[in-house]
Simulated assay, not measured.
Amino acid sequence: MKPLVGAMQAWSCFVISVFAIIILSILGILFKGNHPELVGGEEDPKNGEEVAATVFIAVMIYAGFLVFCGLQGLLHLRESRRGAIAL
């Protein structure tokens, strides 16, 4: 099976996805707990749990990117070990 994206793009997407999952998970936990810094003002969201659900959906999307990009990176590693010529 041939990779769909380049090696650099696959590993960059992998690293960005890891950081996005960490940061968004922390934000989701804070919104779920109705942290006053995030839901305390007049212009802030009224229901932190609804916002947390949306943030956790974004975490799931980034988890999908993480799996896809990680598999693409592994395909590049497998190709390079077989002696394929990189263009």
Results as ranks from 00 to 15, higher is better:
residue 66 L to D: 08
residue 13 C to F: 02
residue 42 E to W: 12
residue 10 A to N: 03
residue 62 Y to A: 08
residue 56 F to L: 02
residue 66 L to V: 05
residue 72 Q to H: 01
residue 69 C to W: 09
residue 29 I to M: 13
residue 10 A to P: 00
residue 49 E to A: 15
residue 37 E to M: 12
residue 36 P to E: 13
residue 58 A to T: 04
residue 4 L to H: 12
residue 4 L to K: 13
residue 14 F to S: 08
residue 78 R to Y: 08
residue 69 C to T: 04
residue 64 G to I: 06
residue 35 H to L: 10
residue 63 A to K: 00
residue 7 A to K: 15
residue 82 R to C: 11
residue 3 P to Y: 05
residue 33 G to N: 13
residue 59 V to I: 07
residue 54 T to S: 02
residue 63 A to W: 02
residue 19 F to Y: 15
residue 28 G to P: 03
residue 6 G to M: 02
residue 15 V to Y: 14
residue 77 L to E: 01
residue 68 F to Y: 04
residue 75 L to P: 14
residue 75 L to H: 12
residue 56 F to M: 07
residue 66 L to R: 07
residue 61 I to M: 07
residue 50 E to S: 14
residue 71 L to D: 05
residue 32 K to L: 11
residue 31 F to T: 01
residue 51 V to R: 06
residue 82 R to G: 06
residue 20 A to T: 03
residue 85 I to Q: 11
residue 73 G to D: 02
residue 67 V to G: 00
residue 65 F to G: 11
residue 41 G to P: 12
residue 45 P to F: 03
residue 18 V to D: 08
residue 4 L to Y: 06
residue 60 M to V: 13
residue 22 I to M: 14
residue 54 T to H: 04
residue 10 A to R: 07
residue 59 V to P: 05
residue 85 I to S: 12
residue 3 P to W: 03
residue 14 F to Y: 14
residue 28 G to S: 04
residue 57 I to S: 14
residue 2 K to N: 03
residue 30 L to R: 10
residue 51 V to N: 05
residue 11 W to P: 00
residue 19 F to L: 15
residue 56 F to I: 05
residue 48 G to S: 05
residue 18 V to K: 10
residue 20 A to I: 01
residue 9 Q to G: 08
residue 71 L to Q: 09
residue 73 G to E: 01
residue 74 L to E: 06
residue 6 G to E: 04
residue 76 H to G: 05
residue 72 Q to R: 02
residue 57 I to A: 15
residue 68 F to C: 08
residue 16 I to T: 11
residue 7 A to T: 05
residue 26 I to M: 14
residue 5 V to T: 02
residue 71 L to Y: 03
residue 38 L to Y: 13
